[in-house]
Amino acid sequence: MSQSDRAEKVRHLVDGAVAGDVRSVSRLISLVENEASGYEEAYSMFYGRTGKAKVIGITGPPGGGKSTLVDKLASKLRQLGNRVGVIAVDPTSPFTGGAVLGDRVRMQRHNADPGVFIRSMGTRGHLGGLSRGTAAAVDVLDAAGYDYVLVETVGVGQSEIEISSLSDLVVLLNVPGLGDEIQIIKAGIMEIGDVFVVNKMDRPGADRTKAELEYALDLGHELPRRPKVLMTNAETSEGVAELVAEIDDYYGWLRDSGILEKRRAKHAELVVTRMLADRLMKRLGSEGEDGELAGELYVCVSRRLLTPYEAAERIFKRIIEKGAI
């Protein structure tokens, strides 16, 4: 395919997506997720349209009812006249590279509704738990005019931290009686929540879980406005309307106080610096003479012949020698 044909095709896809054509949105997500040929051009075509969607991250322990809650949040947001995008992230098997993405099971009734777009994604071996594709998919849905983009990830390992690096606002979900009294009061995790939810409020121990979260928040929170702890029962929709109201309210405050803008700048920094690192490594190349050189340097570090700093410095010099960055 010639350069201009490709650009034409990408243009067509972006135009379709921006106009809200579901199939174009879906294919554009694949294009950027796979970093397939033309994804950078596509990005420059639609990126100017992004920034309008409210990106809400939702995370919590497995079995906490996240998918059901996201399903109900989407319904409520629809009732209020919003278009809703959902990205449900499940882990990719590190052994086979495959994944079974099953969150959609609980959201299938939205399939008849053109105002809801649901996409399942695997983490695809990305260390942080969220693939780079997740952020790109958020951007596509944003450009396609979805008012809210809900990003759901399972809170194990690093993904709950990672989710704050692409969300405007994070909802931290917990449930009573999953063994550990409060699973999410772990170092660094309380800090990322803007709204706390105790789901399955009909279960014994719900009040206690709420009290413990309140106590932990009383002890300290990062932002000047103390996050609230809400109770929901996603199965029956109880508390979901209140949750939407609180999300909107907190979101408004984040925006008005200028924190949202700072957050987004921070996210941009993260994205750009990561891309920069990728590019530098790509420039060095993993094969050929330079790849070998780097490989030897790693061995030297492991044998304590060089410090990691010295090795990094040498690689950096080598990249510079190869030409302007």
Binding site: S93, T96, G97, V100, G102, R104, Q108, S120, G122
Partner: peptide
């Protein structure tokens, strides 16, 4: 089958 396709390296969306 969903699991087997996963183990063959595919991304499987299961709808129930």
């Amino acid at each position: 089958v969903a699991r087997a396709l996963r183990d063959a390296g595919m991304e499987v969306i299961y709808t129930g």
